[in-house]
Computed example of a mutant assay.
Amino acid sequence: MRTLLIIGTVGAGKTSAAEKVGELLAAAGTPHGVIDLDALSRGWPPPAGDRFNFALTVRNLRSLAANFRDIGAERLVLAGVAENAGHREKIAEAVGGELTVCRLRVDLATVRERLAGRHLDDPEGLDWHLKRSGELDRILREAQVEDVVVDGTGPVTRVAEEILRAIG
């Protein structure tokens, strides 16, 4: 099973792009699964030293990947974050197959606009996400865990098509 991990800062469009890639794979008749890694980490409180519950994400991903493999999925599309080579390695181990990482590149002004639209009634959440967007953008640019980089601005269908072209 070939796995695509779409990474990027908060507000980059990872989940939207992953869902659209899934739609394009379905249209092409390719058996697949789509997983938002954020949903796999939603447990509270996170353990000390694991701010974003990454270990729980990996445990849950291992189970889901096996389930998708068991039903015949040929592709697995993930939306999430791999902040370093160790994260990439753990995700690859969890899915048990070929892993290609695509980083969505979006300028921070666009990210800020997207986040402001998401957090209209949540000023504290907006503030946290705005701070995290710059921090995570820097972390991902420096870590260079991706195989390809795709422009994440513009219509999501165009972004998804470009991702599929870039990964082959």
Rank of each mutant, 00 (worst) to 15 (best):
M1K: 00
R2H: 04
T3V: 04
T3A: 05
L4T: 06
L4R: 11
I6Y: 00
I6R: 00
G8R: 01
T9Q: 11
V10A: 06
G11C: 04
A12C: 07
A12D: 06
K14I: 13
K14L: 07
K14D: 05
T15L: 04
T15D: 10
A17G: 05
A17H: 04
A18P: 15
A18E: 13
G22S: 09
G22W: 05
E23H: 15
E23M: 09
L25D: 01
A27T: 06
A28P: 10
G29T: 04
G33W: 08
G33R: 02
V34E: 02
V34R: 00
D36E: 10
D38L: 04
D38N: 05
A39K: 14
L40V: 13
P46E: 07
A48S: 06
A48D: 14
D50M: 03
F52C: 07
N53S: 14
N53I: 09
F54Y: 10
F54L: 13
A55Q: 09
A55C: 12
L56E: 12
V58W: 00
V58E: 00
V58F: 00
R59F: 08
R59G: 08
R59I: 12
L61Y: 05
R62L: 12
S63M: 11
S63R: 14
A66H: 10
F68N: 10
D70I: 03
G72V: 07
A73D: 03
A73M: 10
V77P: 10
V77W: 05
L78F: 07
L78T: 02
A79D: 09
G80V: 11
V81P: 00
A82S: 15
N84H: 07
N84R: 02
A85Q: 13
A85N: 05
H87A: 10
H87N: 08
E89A: 12
E89I: 10
K90V: 05
E93D: 15
A94P: 02
V95K: 01
V95F: 02
G96T: 01
G96M: 01
G97D: 11
G97T: 15
E98W: 13
L99G: 01
L99S: 01
L99C: 04
T100P: 02
C102T: 14
L104R: 00
V106T: 03
T110D: 03
V111C: 11
R112I: 00
R112C: 04
R112K: 09
E113Y: 01
E113V: 14
R118W: 01
H119D: 03
H119F: 05
D121C: 12
P123V: 02
P123W: 00
G125N: 08
D127S: 13
H129A: 09
L130Y: 03
L130F: 04
K131T: 11
K131V: 12
R132G: 03
E135W: 10
R138K: 08
R141K: 07
E142R: 01
Q144P: 08
V145L: 08
V145H: 01
D147Q: 06
D147V: 03
V148Q: 06
V150G: 00
T157V: 15
R158H: 15
R158W: 08
A160F: 14
E162W: 06
E162D: 07
R165G: 14
A166L: 03
I167C: 13
I167L: 14
